[in-house]
Structures are given as structure tokens and as C-alpha cells.
Nucleic acid binder design. Structure first.
Length: 274
DNA sequence: CACGAGACCTGTTCGC
DNA sequence: TGCGAACAGGTCTCGT
């Protein structure tokens, strides 16, 4: 579910508080774990101690990670496929998939819902080691067309799996990879170091536009895991197999690339580049 | 270095 | 209606 725009939306809602108070300035009293494997670092017992009575001083996003600055150290949460985070009153009934619950002061909780149990939580004295493995933030000023071009030319990989590689560029997942490639009019199997300068520029732009669009619509809500986003109503190719391309009316195709469903317009995104 | 397959989990939807 | 297969927003590990 959560890619960069969805995580960004969640971070904003946690920070400023939609239903309930914002997280910033609140103290964590303790954590309840019904699925202990959510806690991947350090050990569960150490994690509990590190978290206990820590105040949340800030909530940020890096790639698809949520970054919680505590008084001492940093908590990272990765939502993976089915994770969601929200603030709920402590006296409200625990929902079916709320496997990990942080009790906050003043009877509020931070609840991690995760039906597929792929999500992970860690505490680090210094999270730099973990976050350093991520590629550039596509919406940052450092992510220039020049930098991107250099990165693309230094590899010889199909574009789709490259965009999904978090060490190459951070935050893009299956939805936004397909949407960005369609905007750039590039085939998902096109090899990175065959792009022209114009292609690179188009992809750079396509990535940023798709992500900004997603954030603007509060992310995409597809399955029963609903969070109030509406970017799903603006997909150009993702999950639109058989529907008309909005640019040229050709039916959208679905292929499999790197074991991931991949959606494209065969007219706008011809197999052989330009 | 690039790529494919299999794991990790659970739920929904599709085809017969 | 029932039942197995396919598929799902992510990432890691292993083998070639």
C-alpha cells in the first residue's frame, strides 16, 4: 500500500493530528505487541526499554520510512504492503489488524494496523546507517536531472525494476513507477543507459509529477485498507488494463516485470525507444 | 552486476 | 455455492 505519497500523507496526519492530537510533544508510555516480529531491532525487551517514557520530538519521512525523533534515539517504522498508522483513543476497541499499539500519555494510542504482518519497527541510537542505504529523495532539491542522468547512465537495467530499487531512488513503488513511466512515455523494459537526454528529463519530470499528484490527493486507497486518499481516481495506467489510454485511447496493457504487475500504454510507451 | 525465484503473511477476487 | 488459483501498495535472500 504505502509508497512515498501515502507515507507522506500519514506522516502529516500524525504530526498535525486529524482525529485527535498530534504526535509531536507526546510521550510514549509503553508498547503492546501482539505480533512481536513487528519489532526487528534491537531485541523486543531492549526496544521496550528504549521506547518507554520517550517523548516524540518530530515525525519525518525518508523514502518509505516513518522517522520518529525521540528524546534518545530514533524509531523507524516501515509499513511494507499493508501497514497503516493512526492515533486513536486508548479506550476504543482494538481493531482486528492493530497488532502493535503504543500507549501515549493522556489516553491516546499510536496504532499500527498491518493485516499481512510484513511491516517492521526498529529503534536506533543513530538511524543513519539504515537510512544511508536509500537513494536520493526524488522531491528534494538534490535530485537534479543531472544527478539522475548520471545514475541512469551508470547502470544497465530495465527502468521499472530500477525505479523500484530503493537504493537507486527512494520512495517509489509499483503504482508510481508505472504512473511515472507513462508520463515519461517510456517502456518499463527500456534499459537505463539507452535513454537520451530528453528521455531522462521526461522521466525526471514524470516521477516528480506522479509523486506530487499522489501527495496532492492524499495518496491512493485501493483495497479494504482504506485511508481516505483518492489518487486511485486519477491513475493513468495502474490497474487500468483494457481501459482506454487517456492520451491516445489505446487499451492499457498489463505485463509482468520482475514479478510485479506492470501497466502501460503500448502506443505511448513503445517497446523500442525513440 | 543483473535477474529470476522463493519467502514472508493474509485477504479478496476470479474462474470453473 | 464451493474451492483452489491468482493477485495484492514491499523487500530480503539465494542461486545462476
Amino acid at each position: 500500500m504505502p509508497e512515498l505519497p501515502e507515507v507522506e500523507t500519514i506522516v502529516r496526519s500524525l504530526k498535525h493530528g486529524k482525529a485527535g492530537p498530534g504526535l509531536v510533544g507526546r510521550r510514549i508510555l509503553r508498547v503492546q505487541t501482539r505480533w512481536p516480529r513487528h519489532i526487528e531491532h534491537p531485541s523486543l525487551s531492549t526496544f521496550r526499554k528504549r521506547i518507554k517514557n520517550q517523548k516524540v520530538n518530530d515525525v519525518l519521512r525518508r523514502g518509505k520510512y516513518l522517522v520518529f525523533h525521540l528524546d534518545l534515539g530514533t524509531m523507524l517504522i516501515h509499513l511494507r504492503m499493508s501497514g497503516d498508522l493512526r492515533i486513536s483513543p486508548s479506550n476504543s476497541e482494538r481493531a482486528r489488524y492493530e497488532h502493535t499499539i503504543f500507549n501515549l500519555e493522556n489516553a491516546w494510542d499510536l496504532r499500527f494496523s498491518d493485516s499481512r504482518k510484513f511491516g517492521r519497527i526498529g529503534w536506533y541510537r543513530d538511524p543513519a546507517n539504515v537510512l544511508a542505504k536509500l537513494g536520493p529523495e526524488p522531491l528534494s532539491d538534490e535530485f537534479t536531472p543531472e544527478l539522475f542522468n548520471q545514475a541512469l547512465q551508470s547502470r544497465s537495467r530495465a527502468l521499472k525494476p530500477l525505479l523500484l530499487d530503493q537504493s537507486f531512488i527512494a520512495g517509489i513503488g509499483n503504482i508510481y513507477a508505472d504512473e511515472a513511466l507513462h508520463r515519461a512515455r517510456l517502456h518499463p523494459l527500456r534499459i537505463s543507459n539507452t535513454l537520451s537526454g530528453g528521455d531522462t528529463e521526461a522521466l525526471w519530470r514524470g516521477i516528480r509529477e506522479a509523486l506530487y499528484d499522489g501527495i496532492h490527493h492524499n495518496g491512493a486507497s485501493i483495497d479494504w485498507v482504506y485511508r481516505g486518499g483518492e489518487f486511485q481516481n486519477h491513475f493513468r495506467v495502474y490497474q487500468r488494463e483494457g481501459d482506454d489510454c487517456e492520451v491516445c485511447a489505446t487499451p492499457i496493457e498489463r505485463i509482468v516485470v520482475g514479478q510485479r504487475g506492470t501497466h502501460l500504454c503500448p502506443t505511448c510507451q513503445p517497446e523500442k525507444g525513440r
